[in-house]
Amino acid sequence: MGFLDFLFGKRKQEQPKAQPKAVSKTPVQSVREPITPKSVNPQEKSMSSKPSIPTMEPFVFKSDCHQRYENGNEVMGLQQCVRTVSVEKNTNGCRGYKLNPGDGYIVKVFNDDLGKPNMSDKPMRIVSRTADKVELRGFPIEAQTPFGWQEVDYRDYGFTVYYTNGKVSKCVLHMFDRNVDLEYRKSDASAPLKITVNSNTDSQSSQPSVKAIAMGAPFRFSFDVTVIKQYYNQRSEQIKLEDKVIATMIRTANNGNIMINFSNLSILKSKGVIQTNLSLVPDFSYNQDAEGDEFASAEINNSWAAMSSGKEYVSLFQITKQKGNMVSFIINNLPGDQDFYYLIMFRQ
């Protein structure tokens, strides 16, 4: 018997005599071991191939001005007022939504003029991220409504955060269904314009301009009164007044208090709108938009002491001239944790 016969022929003859189990076991092991080592955990392998979810650092951004865009065009002029914008990590869900903890982020915009949220909190997820920009977008979610839990499609909302040297430089809230963007900025150049009083402006009968009023000039106006009950969820309703109410708005001396006296205060009191005539000390800032409309705006009583006093308080006062007519309003906040405020409108 040759050497080759020993390797090939002899083995073929002897193979049937071997125990079947022993013969089949050895080749199976020799084939399988190189392919699937015992040290490899299939579960760990599948986990390692799972794509990572983009993340971002939560932040709080104080904006001192914002610009509104409609269809890509600037409207209403640069609004010089404080808004607090924040993005928080979702760790415990979000009140008012069926949202699992850990799913995305919560976008918030706080109206510092009113001491209240500027919009309801918006759950969003990151859709793209670069070194200088993070884009988030809402998603369909169940929200609590007066009619129970209903699905709302928050894909109509988006939010873009811009970074400069690693710090937030501006934020843009997108309302895609309306093609509206609100760009929140922060700039030293955006501080409200302060104007020196002209002491020669002392006539109440000359109908001073909004700019002169912002300077502190005396004036006297009579207005028709309209009242809007404004909810923070953006719903509003007009309060019906049985009789006409006239408001006299007057300042008798340069930089003096502004008095607002209602002709029929009892009607407003019965509706819970406001309880007293007013004496206000506003520190106006002046602004003019691209259409020539003028605005004298002042925050009033925006403090913890006012909010926790248990008394109503005016938080915002504005006098404007729009299309040649003087228009004014105040925002009156009621005691306690209300979900609405009263917008008292004054029109000539």
Rank of each mutant, 00 (worst) to 15 (best):
N100G: 00
I106M: 07
D112R: 06
E88D: 12
N233Y: 09
F3E: 12
A143Q: 13
Q67S: 10
A189I: 09
D121P: 01
S205I: 15
M47C: 04
P101N: 03
M56L: 13
A131V: 14
E14L: 15
E135A: 14
S297V: 07
S206N: 12
D224H: 04
Q79F: 14
N90E: 12
N233Q: 10
L334T: 13
V87R: 01
N118V: 00
N198Y: 03
Q207I: 09
P27R: 10
T226Y: 14
T36N: 14
Q43A: 12
T196G: 14
A18G: 08
Q67C: 06
D289V: 02
S222A: 11
I300D: 05
V28R: 11
Y286T: 02
G148T: 13
V161S: 04
E291D: 15
V327H: 01
R178E: 15
K122P: 00
P123M: 00
L99D: 10
L241E: 04
N277M: 04
Q338L: 08
L182W: 04
K12C: 08
I246C: 03
M175G: 04
C81K: 15
N325R: 13
K167I: 08
T252R: 11
I250Q: 09
V60G: 04
K240Y: 05
L241Q: 14
S309L: 08
D103C: 05
K12W: 06
V314F: 10
K45D: 12
G166V: 04
Q80F: 10
N200V: 10
M326I: 02
S266F: 11
I35D: 04
M175Q: 07
A217V: 05
T276L: 09
F329P: 00
S48K: 08
D283T: 11
K89N: 07
F317A: 01
V82K: 06
